[in-house]
Amino acid sequence: MDEMDLMKKLRDVPSPGPEAYDDARAALRTAMAEPVAAVVRPKRWFSWPKAGVAALGAAAVATAVVMGTTGGSVPPPAPPAAAPQAVESPLVKLASEVKAAAVTGDSSLIVRTNLAPDKSQYIWYTVYTDKGQTFHGDSPKTLAQAAAKGSDLSTDYDRRLMGAARLAATGDLEQARNAMVNGAGCCWALGGSPAEQEKSWAEGQEKRAEVFRMKGMEVPPAKPRPTGKELEDGINNTLWSNTTYALFIGAANPDIRAGSLKLLSTIKDVTIDRADFEGRPVMKLAAGPAVSKGEGSHVVTVDAETALPIRSEVVPLQGPQDPHSVANYKSSRVNLADIATGKI
């Protein structure tokens, strides 16, 4: 026996069921029948507002601000109302400044650098075009190849979250909040009827049970849909998760940044610290244990003047000096044609 034999012992896993293959082929046939619907964004994705350059000043706010309030510790059971944004929220103030920023190029380039457990760096390049395409690469070369080949890997999930962030920037905040929470497709169905919400929750529980079955573990009893503070925390967890993801992937777009900030301002358990990071003023947004269900905290650092995300780190409760994981971000506006020819 050698190391390859050991690897082969790990090969056998439960394969997708026959229905899954049928469903996948059906999805393919649908896409082939409606190719435009599968890849083209609504028209508004093509027309970002062309605003003039505005003077961006640092918001004069105190440090360690605890964000707004929902006006009560127990939200309505179904559907929970969107928390009103804090009038003096530094995030809302920053969002208004971000929206005035000018837009150049036709795409956003996001460079993410993660630290592996062995402290080595892993760099990931992604371009999101204004037309809604997504190209990935683990180097400028592979990114250029993906862009040149038209290897578009955009997903409905990305589209839903970006749309929700844009809506938050320009439209009804409560509607945008529901759209952002529902963007994951599970398990809250905000804005739906009580029956729809229960159905969505039950589907999520079944998915959870399937994970236990896959691991060969005893499946715990399905949990009832939470209520009160537990419900609020669960929804806020999803809102935080989806919104920060939208912020990371859409960072170079002012509307996405502004909308994301406004959505985050509705989570009362998000705290903000002012700090300096490599010589520039930043805001450190932290989702504490209430939002992460006691699993530590997730800290997102954004530039205090532009709201561009700089850093993301997950800090365990037991070891704040040693984050579980860290990712650094650099966002910029680019032209896809330049990317495709390797000009990064």
Partner: peptide, 10 residues
Amino acid sequence: PAEDPAPDVA
């Protein structure tokens, strides 16, 4: 996306 809140943030 989140399927179970706690591990999602983690």
